[in-house]
Nucleic acid binder design. Structure first.
Lengths: 190, 190, 190, 190
DNA sequence: AATGAATGAGGTTTCATTCAT
DNA sequence: GATGAATGAAACCTCATTCAT
């Protein structure tokens, strides 16, 4: 036993992360997840009530881990430094998850639990950035938080889709994003 | 016959737009689309080879219409004005499509045609903005184009999700977005 | 008008002969037959009440033509000569119809009309041979007629299936079959 | 578990044999086979990948059983005795299968696996008889094997179609067939 | 007579979930 | 706890046939 849930719980969650991440919710089969986890199909249902609940659990684990890492990036730095660290973390996080694209796109709809959780995650993330911006005196901090996260999300797409987006490009992109957010594009016009 | 395809073609496309937009690809049933269009199930297959092809056709129509409208927003204006118009168009477009959220999220995966089309659309949109920025002397125009579109996409989310996001808020948001992109957030710090 | 039915009737029958012959009843589509005949789908139903009736008509035409040709082979010849002519006709007939294999195998079942017709055809063919044998003094003429036809049917299979069965082989086979039927296999044993 | 496959496997195969045999491939429904086997529809697909594969499995089992029985009929007998035993076995085999006529006629086409298997079966059967004839000094043994089998196949038709063909008639027919094959029809002419 | 758009019944197949062992 | 055989609902899609033009 490695935790309160037991090894199988983790194995199933890991397998679900892999399979859902590769194929999305609807094209993933419980049988494949079970096989990948090295357990029987029925065992999945001992730990998770349904396919949807399993998906939600996978998402939850990923998002919580993300927020925990992000938390550290923002404290005890000035605005410029904080934004740069945040951008780097955001982009590198998804760079490492290139194989799990579908986790962020092909989610089950009609599932109130998941929808609520995802909105909660987005709200929490936004709040975290909003608070940082507010504490640094930025006006309309919530709008600015959303705008910065939006920029980074679009950069994330490039990372997930372009095979030739390498780790060094990630650093460069993060730097540009933070700079643009701080000074606007006019700064670069002659 | 109102066009080259006939009334039924349009009726099915409209119904598919409604149903796919409300439930996403996987949770939508051809039978429901057919009923909504006022035709028999088999009729859908006279006009579209498969459920996936129908979804692609719906997406294509929406995206092409979008690009056509966007085209007009960018020409013959200076940078500030062009960005503001673009932001307004982007956000108002999706404000009008609040009921069709799922069209943008729950798409079928494993469908090469659709994936290719969507990437083409995103590329075309990005190019359109990139060219505008380049012609106005902005450095790294592609990066800046993506960043601006990313900001707007995040604002779009708020519009789609928040019931209390009203049309007047859209204008305000567009203005802020364009301003932030031009001058950065520092401009608002004391 | 080339006959009492008109050109389209013949065109449909010819197309049906081709398509049914190539794919069998169940895998053939009325739409394909119509296209092959150069008429609209609905036109097929002006001349034939149903797909099954069309198949029956195709079969009937082919069988009647066959019996008519066979009739001539048996009259005014002695037994040996008559059997040889018959064997030749039987095998060459199907040699010419190599492309229409499925007409003889993939027939619709559950169709009383067709079943009755086919049995009638087999009975007529058998009677024709039986009468010849009886008139030449062969005992148990019906059994012998069936046996000879059976031999030839098996040879027909080889013709339909083997790509390297050439026209000259047909003659040889017919000769052997007639000889075997007349004298038995012992005649060839040392 | 009564065998390597389990009871359900056999039950489904038996039910498929019954239903396919009565109605042919195309007119048989998986749901009917499942009901006949006393299992749910989905269970059929646990054991057989598709309807076609199930049909092939049924055919294979029947043919293999047939060849095994036939093997015994031909060994350790002189030619006359061997042919008589073979004719009896051939005809009695199908006499017992009167209810499964459609298994031999209404097979799925366009199925390479099945076509290959059937040709293999016919080849194996022919070879078996050919070898026997060759070992007894009959010239052109392959031709003669095919001819004899052809005769018997035609007799099989009578058995399958005529309700008033009784078991005693089968013996008589086998005897006549073997005699005809050995001595020809001339032996019966005055 | 000829057309072909429209219909809709119906069958194969999948797969999440259950439960007896 | 663990298994995996069994279930059966549900949906896509086909295609013979009809009928208004």
């Amino acid at each position: 036993m490695s935790g309160i849930h037991g090894d199988k719980y983790e194995a199933i969650l890991d397998a679900a992360y892999t399979v859902f991440g590769a194929k999305g919710f609807y094209e993933s089969k419980i049988s494949e997840i079970a096989e990948d986890a090295g357990v029987a199909k029925g065992t999945v249902y001992l730990y998770f009530k349904s396919k949807e609940q399993l998906f939600t659990a996978v998402t939850r684990r990923d998002c919580e881990q993300y927020l925990a890492e992000m938390q550290g990036a923002l404290v005890q730095h000035n605005l410029a430094e904080g934004l740069l660290r945040m951008a780097n973390l955001h982009l590198h996080y998804y760079y490492k998850r290139k194989q799990h694209t579908q986790l962020f796109f092909m989610t089950p709809n009609n599932n109130p639990d998941l929808i609520e959780f995802m909105r909660g995650f987005i709200r929490d993330y936004t709040d975290m950035v909003t608070n940082k911006l507010a504490s640094e005196g930025v006006q309309q901090p919530e709008f600015h938080a959303k705008a910065f996260i939006g920029m980074l999300e679009r950069m994330k797409m490039d990372i997930l889709w372009n095979q030739d987006f390498h780790e060094c490009d990630v650093d460069q992109t993060a730097e540009w994003a933070a700079h643009l957010f701080m000074h606007g594009c006019k700064a670069r016009v002659q």
